[in-house]
Design a protein around this nucleic acid. Structure first.
Length: 377
RNA sequence: GUGGGUAUGGCGCAGUCGGCUAGCGCGCCAGAUUGUGGCUCUGGAGGCCGAGGGUUCGAGUCCCUCUAUCCACC
């Protein structure tokens, strides 16, 4: 059940109750593609840094260790010892990101595994079956994510196909949720809006999928090369056509500034590899903007990453020490940086929720952006 | 002491029969990265080529002396 608790303009403060607990939104989902947050971060760590939802990937887990293996082990929650919500991405994005290794047809997509090169077929039904085996809390529809540079004709065809795929996803998910031996019979399904940067295609698609009564809706195909202005414009134009009483998820986005802008435009679910990937590369988020711990100026810096930050890294380690760990390629360096970044993101979302609760999101957003040098994080 | 080898940016090296602004890897200094291959990419700084002399239009490349260092033998 999804309940909108408060609105400020189009910005939503809501709560999504699932079989794995309630998610307070707006929320940032922490990305753990292969059922692991990269950087040696454990589920215990996630509990400490305020993670509400973990995100894993259908395609990656299908390839290794195999969704049948995870099913036999009782599903993802039991497998990775995480009892809060998990969202699984459908594998659709891999159609886009593994371009060159795939062939898209009406029935689905033929891939080559990036692990061993073997040929794999995945269509809407297969994606739902895999996600059902994984038994995630929320499954994503199987879609195609065209590049931002795709021509209008291509995008129209692609979006039409994604719509047909969504119908098949819904039917298959309903069937799977009704089976006796399905692990999570209340698995939710989010549909995905596409249309590149063509407003009319986006809107037409949004209206069409809104009628299908999914459990939530995502904006896909953004932050794939277009400008920030184009992305904000698409969000602004599209979100009003998606049901306000359903979760709205902006896939793969983004920087703290991107998130603040999107919350203002009505988005309440996010995920992004930035805090984890950038953390592994020593790029750290602070209220004063992003810093690169590899920079020589931190060699003798005894301060924590961020003064006053209660995260496990800032509680007891200096920038100088963490910089040394990173340069020495010690795992602990990456781990501490990833923990800090995820804490920063989770904390920012908490602040956003508080601001919305108190009806002061607009001023919070301005203050946060100003602090981060007007969003140049 | 004798014989042989080697000296080129922080480290390891390439430089063909002498020929334009001396390259490469790592490191260093910066910058990218948006539903993740702990990757990758893009820039940048840094060298009077061990020292001195000679041959030549021209020497990192050839010759002589010296120095340092390595190996073997005494």
């Amino acid at each position: 059940m999804y309940q909108v608790l408060k609105m400020e303009g189009r910005a939503k403060r809501a709560a999504l109750t699932t079989v794995h607990g309630t998610v307070q939104t707006p929320v940032f989902m922490n990305v753990g593609t292969v059922a692991a947050i990269k950087g040696a971060v454990s589920t215990e760590d996630l509990e400490k840094i305020g993670t509400q939802v973990e995100l894993s990937n259908t395609y990656h887990l299908h390839v290794r260790p195999g969704d049948q293996v995870i099913r036999q082990l009782g599903g993802l929650h039991k497998f990775m010892s995480w009892n809060k919500p998990i969202l699984t991405d459908s594998g659709g994005f891999q159609v886009f990101s593994l371009a060159g290794l795939r062939r898209i047809k009406e029935e689905g997509v033929y891939f080559h595994s990036h692990i061993d090169g073997r040929k794999i077929f995945m269509g809407p039904e297969e994606s739902m079956q895999i996600q059902s085996n994984l038994a995630s809390t929320i499954a994503m529809a199987f879609d195609e994510c065209p590049p931002s540079t795709a021509l209008r004709d291509y995008v129209e065809d692609s979006v039409a196909r994604t719509s047909r795929w969504l119908v098949r996803c819904k039917q298959e998910m309903a069937r799977l949720n009704g089976l006796e031996d399905t692990i999570n019979k209340k698995q939710l399904l989010f549909g995905i809006n596409q249309g590149a940067v063509f407003d009319d295609i986006r809107i037409d698609h949004a209206r069409r999928i809104a009628e299908l009564d999914c459990d939530g809706y995502a904006l896909g195909g953004l932050a794939v090369g277009e400008s920030h202005e184009q992305m904000y414009h698409v969000i602004e134009e599209t979100v009003p056509w998606l049901p306000v009483d359903k979760p709205t998820y902006l896939m793969g986005v983004g920087t703290p500034a991107n998130i603040l802008e999107a919350v203002e435009r009505g988005v309440d679910f996010f995920d992004c590899v930035y805090p984890t990937r950038n953390g592994r590369h020593g790029h750290l988020y602070t209220n004063g903007g992003k810093i690169n711990l590899f920079n020589a100026k931190y060699e003798l810096d005894e301060r924590p990453i961020e003064e006053g930050c209660p995260c496990p890294a800032c509680q007891r380690y200096s920038r100088a020490y963490i910089r040394h760990l990173l340069k020495a390629k010690e795992m602990l360096g990456m781990r501490l940086c990833v923990l800090h970044n995820l804490y920063f993101y989770n904390k920012m979302m908490e602040e956003i929720r508080e601001a919305l609760d108190e009806g002061r999101f607009a001023s919070y957003k301005k203050q946060k952006l100003d602090g981060m040098q007007n969003g140049k994080d």
